[in-house]
Simulated assay, not measured.
Amino acid sequence: MKGRDGVGKNLIIIGCGGHSKVIVDIIEHMPQFRILGLIDDDPVRPSHFQGYPVLGDTASIKTIKEPVFGGIIGIGDNWSRKKVADVIKKSNPNFPFITIIHPTAYVSPRCHIGAGTAIMAGAIINSDVSIGEHCIVNTLGSVAHDCVIGDYSSVGPGAHLGGNVVIGDNSAVSLGARILHGRTIGDHTVVGAGATVTKDFGDLGVVYGAPAKWIRPRLQEETYL
Rank of each mutant, 00 (worst) to 15 (best):
V129Q: 03
I179M: 07
I88H: 05
A118S: 15
G3I: 11
K83G: 00
P67K: 09
D146W: 02
G168H: 04
K62G: 15
L36F: 03
N126G: 03
H19S: 09
E66L: 12
G202A: 11
S47I: 12
H102Y: 03
E28Y: 05
N170I: 10
G56W: 04
I131K: 01
I179V: 15
G76C: 07
Q32S: 14
I113K: 04
I179H: 08
T58I: 14
H48A: 13
D151G: 07
G18K: 10
I119P: 05
I136R: 02
D146Q: 13
G162L: 08
T223N: 10
F69D: 05
F95Q: 12
I23H: 01
N170D: 11
C147H: 03
I12S: 03
R178L: 08
S171A: 14
F201Q: 09
G71V: 06
V166H: 12
P157T: 13
I23R: 03
T189K: 08
G122S: 08
R218M: 07
A121V: 08
D25R: 05
G116F: 09
L55N: 08
D200C: 03
V68T: 07
P103Y: 07
K65W: 00
A144F: 00
V44H: 06
H48M: 14
D77C: 02
G114I: 07
I136G: 01
V155M: 09
L140S: 15
D151N: 15
L225M: 11
A212S: 12
G116A: 10
L55H: 07
P217E: 11
D5C: 14
P93R: 12
I167W: 01
D77V: 03
G163K: 08
S80L: 14
I124V: 15
G202T: 06
A105R: 10
I131C: 04
I119A: 04
D169V: 15
L175V: 15
T104C: 01
L140T: 14
M1N: 05
V68M: 07
A105S: 12
D128P: 04
A210Q: 14
I136W: 01
